[in-house]
Design a protein around this nucleic acid. Structure first.
Lengths: 139, 139
DNA sequence: GTAACTGCAAAATATTTGCATCCTT
DNA sequence: AAGGATGCAAATATTTTGCAGTTAC
């Protein structure tokens, strides 16, 4: 059941169970994609304090519950991490897709890609692939 | 000669030749990587009005002289486009590297990567690969 | 009861817009 | 001379910080 899963995520990360955390997490679980700070203010029926949202998102990112997605227009997007993401260690083969039309962000978890071969002297710790284009709904 | 090249870039794009445009372009040509808005305010000996920098950067991006680089921490970075970038059409195999340590951004023009195979129904128009890690100087 | 979390106010930053003036062509 | 670019002021928007009150455990 959804509610129980949310509680266990919070507990697993030593976070106290609070209303906003539960509701914001739930929002992500019910969303098939990524959310921006503003989406959380709007999309949800609830009212969250701006500051609480900032802090909740930051906490979730630190704990590895959410991750940020770099975007071409440099807006800040957040998405749920899969189970194999732990604090600061995200799984590498993660492709994000952002629709030029409807602006929805997808995590294409099953889309693999080859890591680029870096020049000598460069060490990779994280790779982000962001594909822009037209998504399946807008096609 | 550098100066002449700058002038021709501006002329080619139907931009009038002004002091700030020349100096900001020059700054990019002398920089081996990307610059943020704040870098332009600081790094240059010159003083540019904040607003002029915003407008100049925007103009350069529109004309395809500069492009933005998506970053994991969602700061806004700008870098020179290569010759095969024209207005709105950047060349696809472009890998960016951002150093976790010194924060320098590199355009790894000669680093190729394979475009990911998208799920059915998704159409790609642009792909950004951002690698984070330790750069050659910090290694 | 204590530590952690929230919400409000306010500070600090960042970005955009309007307009008068100055520069480029 | 005309259109475009700049710089200042000010309006907006975004993010951060401090603190008092509240809630979770």
């Amino acid at each position: 059941m959804m509610g129980i899963e949310i509680l266990s995520v919070l507990k697993k990360n030593n976070l106290s169970i609070t209303g906003s955390r539960k509701k914001i997490l739930e929002l992500f679980q019910h969303t098939d994609g990524a959310l921006a700070h503003a989406d959380i203010e709007k999309k949800s029926g609830e009212h969250f304090d701006r500051v609480t949202i900032y802090r909740t998102l930051q906490t979730f990112v630190e704990k590895g519950i959410l991750h940020t997605i770099p975007t071409a227009d440099n807006s800040v997007l957040y998405a749920l991490c899969k189970d194999d993401c732990s604090q600061g260690h995200h799984h590498d083969n993660h492709v994000h897709f952002i629709c030029d039309n409807c602006n929805t962000a997808y995590c294409l978890d099953n889309t693999d890609y080859a890591k680029p071969q870096l020049p000598k002297g460069f060490k990779q710790t994280r790779t982000d692939v962001i594909v822009s284009g037209i998504c399946i709904k807008c096609n």
